[in-house]
Design a protein around this nucleic acid. Structure first.
Lengths: 219, 219
DNA sequence: AATTGTGAAACACTTCACAGCC
DNA sequence: GGCTGTGAAGTGTTTCACAATT
């Protein structure tokens, strides 16, 4: 059999794996040693067939007639995602959103370690978020490689976001979670995931207003 | 021709419409009166065919050989999404994340108005975020209908999230943006959109670690 | 000449249905 | 008997390619 992380995983699946991981961790906490795809379906909201298809990507991890061993499955998924060793993350932008995200990551990071925070505002530099000190952006090129950071969160104003992204990519970052309201270009070297609050709210407005009208009228 | 908001819009399209809206607003600010699907493609990152297909859902809005009138298109999309009149949103949970989201909504809401904030912590009740005062959760059943709130943001701890959701749905909320790390059930009455920071970070870890390995090795 | 609007083809993802295995 | 793993069918989305229109 070939190496462990060799399979190419579709993006939709990559986004479901952390959900499985969370449930598996819960199950392990409850002392459950074996779990069926039906039970996972109940806890995740995905269909059992989909779960079996997803897990089969990594080989036959289950036992027919029985189910999946929770601990074994959890370990395999952690390793498939690269979470079997600590993953370091840096935050750029220590405004109120950035600071909240940093706190969230520190408490509920799920194996992701916040190791650096950068900002250019002298009022913020030197402040501490948990045990991480806010540093000037000028320190980034020195610190990122030293701290082995390959993952970053961007929470700066729109106007600065692409420049910050270029700086991150230049210094070895391979994946970026972007909260600023612009589509960032990873320059072919970094995977960018955008979370744009205005877009989320506006698309939900459709369901709050238009889809609701339809429900009230006929459906 | 049938009524205006009568078309059923696929979910993927609902999530692209706000992107078109933002670009159209920018273009209008630049004084651009007509825009082609190619220009929109350049500014949004979507393909021009996809943009034409999306826009064609609402009827033939463009002019062949010429393009789309920015102002007209923007108005039609606003109306299709229910954003042609103000949409009120309530926030539940005034922790650091909730407060940051509230500020964000107040400044960059894109037509969405934050009109109420609720929390159960006496240390937070009475505080102001912008010009909105934090109120006890007990006021929610009285205030939500009075303020015509149909859209809500949930930023409470996981343990409280489903109970808060039920309370919101009970009081007329039809769409929820959920930041707590649990899959919420809208009880068939509300559309729920989950944003789970741990899941986003963990899936990005795959791209930072595993996909990066592949790039370094062969591809 | 330029650009939309759209059937048809291609692709991606999910669900079905059941053979295979414990 | 129960549950996984998976080809086949179904559904949804994107891309292609071009006729229609200004």
């Amino acid at each position: 059999m070939a190496g462990l992380g060799r399979v190419r995983i579709p993006e939709v699946v990559v986004r479901r794996l952390p959900v499985y991981l969370r449930v598996l961790t819960d199950l392990q906490g409850e002392g459950v040693e074996v779990v069926s795809s039906a039970e996972l379906a109940e806890r995740t909201g995905f269909s059992s067939e989909q779960i079996r298809k997803d897990l089969a990507i990594f080989g036959a991890l289950g036992t027919r007639g029985r189910g999946y061993r929770t601990e074994f499955l959890r370990e395999r998924l952690l390793s498939a995602m690269g979470l079997d060793r600590p993953v370091n993350v840096a935050l750029v932008g220590a405004g109120s959103l950035g600071t909240a995200l940093a706190r969230y990551t520190l408490t509920r990071g799920g194996g992701i370690r916040l190791v650096a925070v950068f900002d250019n505002d002298w009022g913020k530099i030197g402040q501490r978020i948990g045990d991480v000190e806010v540093r000037p952006l000028a320190d980034l090129p020195r610190l990122l490689p030293a701290l082995q950071v390959r993952l970053a969160i961007v929470a700066v104003p729109a106007a600065a976001a692409q420049a910050v992204t270029d700086l991150l990519v230049e210094n070895g970052v391979q994946a970026i979670l972007n909260f600023s309201p612009v589509r960032l270009d990873g320059r072919g070297r970094a995977h960018v995931q955008n979370i744009d609050l205005a877009i989320e709210l506006q698309s939900l407005a459709y369901y709050a207003v238009r889809a609701a009208e339809a429900r009230e009228a006929g459906g």
